[in-house]
Design a protein around this nucleic acid. Structure first.
Length: 404
DNA sequence: CGTCTCACG
DNA sequence: ACGTACGTGAGACGT
């Protein structure tokens, strides 16, 4: 696979980190954590190892007699879902959530990344695994640069430490817009879904219109949020129970949303039935480039295992094809950069996003190249035709965190 | 080394 | 009545 050379180059190039920035960030986070720790010990009336779920569980559910929300193998869970529920009745849970988030970011990223900078290159060099996943996605390890925080304010700060390796250069991020749902539109041939992408509509708003049966003007941010969750859930084969839990609504309400969805996007329902049937008949499902995943449990007599296999069969062609598409783009971009003698370099792949460090003089050309190649995937020079257009968004900044 | 937890798409 | 959303990697704890 000609991707190997591309991956090797990304790994060898590495990513430059702003160490001083991370050190400063570490100081402020450490201070916050010290205060949170004191606050927690005061509220509880004793000191214990805050990083031990077992000890925390004792405090919360035995000493403080808070209600057990969720059980795990070893007793009562203290995970984020539980703490969020407990936040309604206990200010301690709010502090704990805060503490958990900050320790995670400090221990996994802020304090760890500077230590793995290569002494020769002064950069961090990840290792991509091309054969590790069951869908065809890449994975990244030592360090994993595909799970750098972004969802919270403090998380985004960490991305600001990812900088170009040369002064005056920029970071450019090119990400596929809704590639999973576009692939779903392609496979399902659903008229409505294809129409939405052909008109380049906001897909979550469009789905809100459909499942609530209301005009566009009546879609508020809350309805759009619900539709967004439905859109994602669909790709994973989510059940009414799962949607209900995620949205904290009744199972009946969730069932209604899903039924409405399939009523308006009947092709998607057909796709799902077809994927499961294919797995049952052939033992595998495959992607747009015919990469297979064998679904061994599809005929299991155990309903739980079988249904899990059915969701794998539904999801893999979508996730796997999106992966095929970005891999083709990576190869074509790499070859074009070489051919055009550009100095800008690809430095990361994060499933639907490619990150570059760019010579500012090459920005305009690179933009054009990326748009052309990523939105028009080709294999051996021949177009890989989809039933919907692909779309990318390009963002440029002085660091990864500023690409927004 | 298994378990729990949590970061990302 | 059952258990319930796909795919990853990593840090801390406790055995």
């Amino acid at each position: 696979m000609p991707l190997i050379e591309v991956l090797y180059k990304i790994e060898a190039t590495g990513v430059k980190l702003n160490i001083d920035f991370l050190k400063e960030l570490s100081k402020s986070v450490t201070l916050k954590l010290e205060n949170l720790t004191k606050e927690i010990y005061n509220m509880v009336g004793e000191e214990f190892n805050l990083n031990s779920p077992k000890q925390l569980s004792k405090i919360l559910f035995e000493k403080l007699k808070l209600p057990i929300i969720k059980k795990i193998k070893t007793g009562a869970s203290t995970d984020v879902e539980v703490l969020e529920e407990l936040s309604k009745i206990s200010p301690l849970a709010v502090i704990l959530l805060n503490y958990r988030q900050l320790t995670k970011l400090k221990n996994t990223y802020i304090d760890t990344l500077p230590n793995i900078v290569n002494k020769t290159t002064n950069k961090v060099h990840t290792s991509f695994n091309q054969t590790g996943t069951s869908t065809g996605r890449l994975s990244s390890e030592n360090p994993n640069l595909q799970n750098i925080p972004i969802k919270t304010e403090i998380g985004r700060e960490i991305r600001k430490a990812f900088i170009p390796s040369k002064p005056e250069w920029k970071i450019l991020s090119a990400d596929y817009s809704q590639i999973d749902l576009r692939v779903l539109a392609h496979f399902s041939m659903d008229k409505n879904l294809i129409d939405a992408f052909n008109k380049d509509e906001d897909i979550h708003t469009r789905t809100a219109i459909e499942i609530f049966n209301i005009p566009k003007e009546m879609v508020d941010s809350e309805k759009r949020r619900i539709a967004k969750t439905v859109n994602f859930g669909i790709i994973y084969g989510m059940t009414p129970f799962g949607l209900a839990k995620e949205l904290k609504i009744s199972k009946e309400q969730a069932k209604e949303y899903i039924e409405n969805y399939f009523l308006k996007y009947p092709g998607v329902k057909m796709y799902m039935i077809g994927a499961v049937e294919k797995a049952k008949k052939l033992g595998y499902v495959d992607t747009i480039l015919n990469r297979r995943r064998y679904i061994t449990n599809i005929n299991s007599k155990n309903r739980i295992i079988r249904e899990s296999a059915e969701r794998e069969a539904i999801n893999m062609p979508i996730q796997g094809s999106a992966s095929d598409i970005i891999k083709l783009a990576m190869i074509n971009i790499y070859n074009t950069i070489k051919k055009e003698n550009l100095s800008s370099k690809m430095i990361l792949q994060v499933h639907d996003e490619l990150v570059f460090e760019c010579n500012p003089k090459e920005l305009d050309l690179l933009r054009k190249i990326l748009k052309e190649i990523m939105e028009n995937p080709t294999i051996s020079g021949k177009p890989l035709k989809l039933r919907v257009p692909l779309k990318i968004d390009i963002k440029i900044g002085d660091n990864w965190g500023e690409c927004k």
